[in-house]
């Protein structure tokens, strides 16, 4: 993709006249446009791989597909320095507390891209007893990329979709400039099965007999 000055033409507000001799040096734009334009072109992903999709993510990050074209080649292993979490692979119950914790540690604005069938909805392993059927049960997802695994082209398309989403946001309404702190997502706990603290009441009600699971207690355990 070669960028020409025409690509940036939407940054200029045409209503305000600019003298001819300054046209190559001055652009008049809105705060939203320049803010989103610069944010969208420097999204740093979290260097964080879960499963097979991570290998395609690495292949995407390599020279052939070159995410530097989108300003995304800087992958940081620390969540504090990242804007985008690519959930690249099967989310297991044992791993999901760590993922939620990582998400909570990311500074806003933060985005989540669910890469592949597993992260989006459980994928081929959905029936498994240790598999979370989609990361969106726990953290908000911005872009879903289908595929098992998605090809690098599909992932790049996911990046472009994310850019469009970022460009549609307005500085007036984004949550991270509102008063107060954003609420952290409660970290799930590993019990007899994965426990989402937000479902506490439901679990309590089920234990009081309102729902009887088809589960038989194992005496040998």
């Amino acid at each position: 993709m070669t960028m020409t000055p025409d690509d940036y033409s939407d940054l200029n507000n045409p209503d305000i006249p600019i003298p001819d001799e300054l046209k190559s040096n001055i652009a008049i734009t809105t705060l939203d446009r320049i803010y989103n334009w610069s944010r969208a072109r420097s999204v740093w992903p979290l260097l964080f791989g879960l499963a097979c999709c991570a290998i395609e993510m690495i292949a995407t990050a390599a020279s052939r597909y070159d995410p530097a074209r989108f300003g995304m080649e800087v992958m940081r292993p620390s969540p504090r320095q990242c804007d985008l979490m690519i959930v690249s692979g099967t989310v297991t119950k044992k791993m999901v507390p760590q993922i939620v914790r990582l998400y909570n540690q990311m500074a806003e604005p933060r985005y989540v891209l669910a890469m592949g069938a597993c992260a989006s909805g459980g994928g081929p392993f959905k029936e498994g007893y240790n598999v979370v059927d989609g990361i969106d049960k726990f953290i908000p997802v911005d872009v879903y990329v289908p595929g098992c695994p998605p090809t690098p082209q599909a992932l790049l398309h996911g990046f472009i979709t994310l850019h469009k989403k970022i460009e549609g946001q307005s500085i007036m309404s984004v949550p991270w400039y509102k008063k107060g702190q954003s609420e952290a997502i409660p970290v799930p706990v590993l019990g007899p099965d994965l426990i989402d603290p937000r479902q506490g009441e439901l679990i309590q009600a089920a234990s009081e007999g309102e729902y009887s699971a088809q589960f038989e207690t194992d005496e040998n355990a």
């Binding site: 119950k93 059927d133 019990g191 007899p192 099965d193 426990i195 309590q204 234990s207 699971a213």
Partner: peptide, 24 residues
């Protein structure tokens, strides 16, 4: 499959499991 469990997710708890007073 989510429609069939009350939690809407891939989890189940043994009968009589009480969250109150439980420690991981």
């Amino acid at each position: 499959a989510e429609m069939k469990t009350p939690y809407g997710m891939n989890v189940q708890y043994p009968g009589g499991f009480k969250l109150e007073g439980w420690e991981p």
